[in-house]
Amino acid sequence: MAVRIRLTRLGRKKKPFYRIVVADSQCPRDGKFLDIVGTYDPLQDPATITIDNEKLQNWVGKGALPTTTVKSLLKKAAITE
């Protein structure tokens, strides 16, 4: 079972809001997940990214890999792996 740190979409049509979640790579985008690590709101100016560093480091330590999009969000939030 490969575990990924990825985005899941919430919000309405044309008003996206994302959660940064830890999920099995085989599950659908908006399906089951293991833990919520943070949020991303692209509609704010500037876009807001909130991350629970303790949870994130815990999951990365267990072997969870971030997707490329989440990796770029972590760079923007100035969080290193």
Rank of each mutant, 00 (worst) to 15 (best):
Y40S: 00
T68W: 08
M1G: 15
I49Q: 02
L56N: 01
T8C: 15
L56Q: 02
D41Y: 05
S25L: 12
D24T: 12
K71R: 10
K75W: 07
K75G: 04
V60T: 07
V3E: 11
V21I: 14
L65N: 09
K55M: 08
K14Q: 07
A47G: 04
L7S: 03
K32L: 14
I20L: 09
A2H: 15
A78I: 00
K62V: 03
V21M: 10
K76D: 01
A78M: 04
I20F: 06
L10R: 11
T69N: 11
E54Y: 13
L73D: 00
V22C: 09
A78D: 08
N53P: 12
N58I: 05
R12G: 13
A23R: 06
L7D: 01
R6T: 04
T67F: 06
P46T: 00
M1I: 14
D45N: 13
T39Y: 05
L56M: 06
T69A: 05
F33E: 05
P46K: 00
P42N: 03
P28A: 10
L10S: 11
G38M: 02
T50N: 12
G11L: 05
K14H: 12
A64F: 03
F17I: 01
G11V: 02
G61L: 07
L73E: 01
R9T: 05
K55Y: 08
G63K: 08
T69L: 07
R9C: 09
A78Q: 06
V70Q: 02
T8L: 12
T8H: 13
R12Y: 10
Y18H: 02
K76F: 02
K62P: 11
A23E: 05
A77L: 01
F33K: 07
D52T: 03
D35M: 10
K55L: 11
V3S: 08
G31C: 13
I5W: 04
D30T: 06
P28K: 09
V22P: 11
L73P: 02
D52P: 12
G63W: 07
T80D: 08
V37Y: 11
G63D: 08
K55C: 08
P46Y: 00
I36Q: 13
K14A: 07
D30C: 13
A47T: 01
M1L: 15
F33R: 10
I36R: 08
I36Y: 07
R29K: 14
Q57C: 05
G38R: 03
R12T: 09
V22N: 04
T48N: 06
T68Y: 12
R6S: 08
T50W: 13
T48F: 05
R12D: 06
I36W: 07
V60N: 07
P46R: 02
K62E: 11
P46E: 00
K13P: 11
V70Y: 03
Y18G: 00
A47R: 03
Q26T: 12
R9I: 04
Y18P: 04
A77W: 03
D45T: 06
D52C: 05
N58W: 14
S72P: 05
A64T: 02
I36H: 09
S72W: 07
K13R: 15
Y18A: 00
P46G: 00
T80R: 10
T67P: 09
R6I: 01
T68E: 13
Q57M: 10
D45P: 06
T39K: 06
